[in-house]
Design a protein around this nucleic acid. Structure first.
Length: 414
DNA sequence: TCTGGGGTCCTAGGACCC
DNA sequence: TCTGGGGTCCTAGGACCC
């Protein structure tokens, strides 16, 4: 049996934890650059605020209803997420962290799974203050469905017998099924399908033709046959990217170079975290598609690294080289993306005797940077090209303190 | 009337997830 | 003024090989 444990309105719950006066009040969290709503408390959902609603378009509604607004504070959310996951790991060693606010666990050999579900739920709530709901079922897709049903009932939902599963699927809307997005929903709906139970009744060949092999896997899972692997150990990532919109439009190559260096440096950090090296690096420059009055530009280029690397210096140099190949004056850019691919394990990188490569030295420098930045905060030690003014940096006008990760931000109790 | 067969690798694009 | 970021997997099609 699988369980899916999911934090309710996770970002909003994190913010409310340190602002208890916001319990039962509408709260929303904005995307980077304070662009649109990406998380809402139940009260905010009830006001009709939807995922992705553009901030300035709902400002009136926000004022009228006294909605509390926060910029995304990923430092806080990541730390709270780790606390939740650690608590869950006390119940079973097999935890697959699926996203910042969700994990799958595998449970076997329990007489009363429902009771165990409540025990996990209550423990997490007591120890972290973050409410969670738990869905239990024989496949991951069904566990996701059980989890949605748990949210509508008492926080834990068990789908264990064929009868219970059939009854649940009959009334479960297709567009809420894990793996069915807007495009597949449109297609299925045009064939008269509306509920998960109806899709499950379709012949496998029909599913394969209309939804490829992935659809067949999902279809099997709906029948309670697990087809999606349970992975406690995270696979090596196939690509690592850092891409963020600027706080303003800019055509200034110096500013864009600074941003590119920052993003590339972050990519190098992530590579080192994964103990991976990259062989290819792409940079893409993008204008603002929401400004059709301005000339549009959208171009990316991929360069080969002269040696598989994860040190900051090599990655940043390659990124700046690629940037200079894609940059074109006369445009106002909104975003630059830095992406590395061709990832290989760090341990498999071979030294190249003929390339006069100073990677060993650079690797040592990067290691030291990681150590210092871990201790004193990200960006304490960085390359000069990364700059210090950061005129392009994103807007975060409603940022909460880093209550749990920064001594300066710790709450004072009077 | 009519152009081999069977592979590999890469990229772009489309679908999905949170 | 103002519209997120970071991933996954699958398929089709082109280039290339023998």
């Amino acid at each position: 049996m699988f369980a899916l444990i999911d934090c309710s309105s996770f970002y909003a719950s994190c913010e409310r934890l340190f602002r208890p006066e916001l319990q039962n009040k509408p709260v929303i969290i904005l995307s980077n650059n304070d662009g649109c709503a990406i998380a809402r408390s139940q009260e905010a959902k009830d006001l009709g605020i939807k995922m992705g609603d553009v901030f300035y378009k709902i400002e009136k509604l926000i004022k009228e209803n006294n909605v509390h607004v926060f910029s995304s504070n990923y430092t806080l959310y990541a730390d709270m997420s780790a606390r939740v996951m650690n608590n869950i790991a006390r119940f079973t060693p097999d935890v697959e962290v699926y996203s910042i606010d969700e994990c799958f666990i595998q449970l076997t050999g329990f007489d009363d799974l429902e009771e165990y579900g409540y025990l996990i739920r209550n423990t997490v709530i007591r120890n972290t203050g973050i409410p969670v709901s738990i869905g239990l079922a024989p496949s991951k897709t069904l566990a996701k469905i059980a989890n949605k049903l748990a949210k509508k009932s008492s926080g834990v939902f068990l789908l264990d017998t064929p009868e219970k599963i059939t009854a649940a699927l009959e009334a479960f809307p297709l567009n809420d099924v894990w793996g069915i997005g807007s495009q597949y929903y449109k297609k299925l709906h045009s064939h008269g399908l509306e509920f998960a139970g109806q899709l499950r009744q379709m012949p496998m060949e029909w599913v394969r033709t209309n939804m490829t092999i992935q659809g067949v896997r999902m279809w099997d899972e709906l029948w309670g046959r697990p087809r999606i692997a349970f992975g406690v150990y995270r696979e090596r990532k196939k690509g690592i990217c850092c891409s963020k919109s600027f706080g303003k439009l800019t055509g200034d190559l110096n500013e864009i170079t600074e941003a590119t260096a920052n993003y590339a440096s972050r990519v190098a950090e992530k590579l080192r975290q994964d103990k991976s090296c990259a062989t290819l690096l792409s940079v893409r420059l993008i204008t603002n598609q929401f400004r059709p009055d301005l000339p549009q530009y959208f171009k990316g280029i991929t360069v080969q690294l002269r040696h598989p690397a994860n040190n900051t210096s090599d990655i940043v140099k390659a990124a700046i080289k690629a940037l200079n190949l894609v940059y074109h004056p006369g445009y106002k850019f909104i975003k630059v993306e830095v992406l590395v691919t061709g990832i290989i394990p760090q341990s498999e990188v071979q030294l190249d005797l003929f390339n006069n490569w100073d990677g060993v030295r650079q690797d040592k420098i990067s290691k030291l940077m990681d150590k210092l930045n871990m201790h004193y905060g990200r960006g304490t030690l960085r390359l000069a090209t990364e700059g210090y003014k950061k005129a392009w940096n994103m807007r975060q006008n409603f940022l909460s303190p880093d209550y749990t990760t920064d001594w300066d931000d710790i709450l004072t109790v009077k």
